[in-house]
Nucleic acid binder design. Structure first.
Length: 242
RNA sequence: AAUCGUUGCU
């Protein structure tokens, strides 16, 4: 069993989840739900939704009922694909099975809707989750702020920052990075700098993402001197790498 | 203990 574990681990680390699962079934071992979810997650990360859905089905047929994480993982896989039709199919399936989608499930779908430029659907999910008694967290807010920001609707993005504050959630470095990147990509360089100042004033440390976002934006604008100054500022201060 | 969601460049 120690041997099996290490062989399975080896296959997983080598990025071969299918082979690892074959080893498990060869020894007629019954994976539990955590093992199944981990494997489904690996396949989804690989973009292999064919095998992910096969494994989801296999889990079902072996008598293990997929849980919220199983469904959310599958939805996440299809959102990345992106195959929103199937993503929403799984969303419907989990509702039908009486499994309550979580904040994570909704955030995942909101993010995918934003990426497919369907801000209406994103907004709809955002409203719906609240009526179901779910409380959007900082990731949900950052996700939808990013959706509006990237689309150039900065007014709405700032409104959502206010909304999250009223909900008692303080914007974090990711929130600021999203706003700064959205501004700079639309050419609002000075406004982006103001936000950078605000971030520092609030005691948040800018990170690598903050600066690469600014430097990239300035370079694409052809403002290499400014870009260099920011780079210089960055090397003078201790910027946390990821 | 171990499985799902958000920001830049590449």
């Amino acid at each position: 069993s120690v041997l099996v574990t290490s062989v399975v681990e080896g296959y997983c680390k080598a990025g071969k989840p299918k082979e690892a699962m074959n080893v498990i079934s060869f020894f007629s071992l019954k994976p539990n739900i955590f093992v199944y979810n981990s494997f489904i997650s690996m396949l989804c990360a690989d973009g292999d939704m064919v095998d992910a859905s096969l494994m989801f089905q296999e889990m079902f047929e072996s008598g293990l009922l997929p849980d919220c994480v199983s469904y959310t993982t599958m939805i996440g896989g299809y959102c990345k694909d992106p195959d929103m039709k199937r993503a929403f199919q799984y969303f419907g399936k989990m509702l039908k099975c009486g499994i309550k989608p979580t904040v994570t499930t909704h955030t995942l779908l909101i993010d995918a809707c934003c990426r497919s430029e369907d801000l209406e659907m994103a907004e709809c999910l955002f409203q719906k989750m609240k009526t179901e008694g779910l409380v959007p967290d900082i990731v949900t807010y950052n996700t939808i702020i990013n959706g509006y920001g990237k689309k150039g609707n900065l007014h709405k993005a700032f409104m959502l920052v206010d909304m999250m504050r009223s909900a008692g959630i303080s914007p974090d470095v990711t929130t600021y990075n999203i706003i700064i990147d959205s501004l700079i990509k639309r050419g609002f360089t000075n406004e982006a700098k103001d936000i950078l100042d605000e971030l520092v004033r609030r005691g948040i440390s800018p990170d690598m993402v903050t600066f690469t976002s600014i430097i990239d934006g300035l370079s694409k604008k052809g403002d290499f001197e400014e870009a260099f100054l920011v780079w210089f500022y960055m090397s003078e201060h201790d910027v946390k790498p990821d």
